[in-house]
Design a binder for these strands. Structure first.
Length: 275
DNA sequence: ATGGTAGATATTCTA
């Protein structure tokens, strides 16, 4: 008798300070009911992470990698997690931009990679701008990591703020953003090479909302009225290894979160798998 | 063409 597949909801959110916005985690949990929630830009050393609050919300299993002031990632889970050890120190900077875990599930584990790719500064020139060079090198290193077989075990979900909007319909104006960091050809081509690793990742939100529909996950703080101007970009991603393509049931982009009190400039993205 | 806002931290960096 075949086991009945059950929904597994995996969400990602650049929270832009977990200490400032810990109360919004309850709003997110109520709205999306994720089983797994991956955070980026927690901006908190691990000893100051609001762990008790997160556990009260039902995320009893938490892995984090934080530092003072910047960066920081975490995986919150209702299901048991096993940390994946021995991951690279990306660009040898020790700067808390990646954490990985195995979720214990019937039929075997599902591996989660949670990434926070460098934003890259303002000037899209790797010679003039070390932050942009770091971004390109980070994406190349991640590409080599998966080319070398890091997801060959299958059943892998890669999420995070990748800080690149790869497709023309992932930005409000393809033409006007071609020389803006996050949508330059050198970045989108780099992300496309990363996407082609692991046998070809499935870009989950683009399965349920195909091009040429516009799809954004981030709206700048520097707009008078983000909804009216709608100058968004799709910077936050959920990718699946090909063996999970058939399990993909739906995706959700929680646009309403951009209007929450003290909103993050990113909104949560979730994939529902039947697994 | 420019500057606009937000967060952590410390008087500036990152986004």
């Amino acid at each position: 008798m075949a086991r009945r597949p059950r929904p597994l909801r995996i969400a990602t959110w650049n929270i832009n300070s977990v200490r400032l916005r810990s109360a919004r985690l309850g709003d997110l949990a109520a709205a999306l009911e994720p089983d797994i929630l991956c955070l980026q830009e927690t901006k908190s050393p691990d000893e100051h992470f609001p762990l008790a609050e997160v556990k009260r919300l039902g995320f009893r299993h938490v892995l984090m990698r934080g530092m003072k002031g910047y960066n920081g990632v975490a995986i919150l889970s209702r299901l048991p997690l096993a940390p994946v050890e021995g991951m690279p120190d990306w660009c040898t900077k020790g700067d808390c931009r990646h954490i990985a875990a195995d979720i214990d599930l019937p039929g075997g584990p599902v591996r989660i990679h949670n990434f926070y790719v460098p934003a890259g500064g303002d000037i899209p020139d790797p010679e003039a701008n070390p932050k942009f060079r770091h971004k390109l090198e980070f994406v190349e290193e991640a590409t080599r990591f998966f080319q070398a077989g890091a997801a060959d075990g299958g059943r892998t979900v890669l999420v995070g703020d990748l800080n690149i909007a790869p497709l023309p319909d992932d930005v409000w104006s393809h033409r006007q953003l071609l020389d803006v960091v996050s949508h330059t050809p050198v970045e989108t081509e780099g992300l496309t090479r990363w996407l082609a690793t692991a046998g070809g990742w499935v870009d989950a939100p683009r399965v349920t909302v195909p091009v040429p529909q516009k799809l954004y996950t981030w709206w700048s703080y520097r707009n008078r009225d983000w909804r009216l101007s709608d100058r968004g970009r799709r910077l936050d991603h959920v990718w699946l290894t090909p063996d999970l393509r058939g399990a993909l049931k739906d995706t959700t982009i929680l646009k309403d979160a951009r209007d929450w009190p003290q909103a993050s400039d990113h909104v949560p993205v979730m994939a529902t798998l039947l697994i």
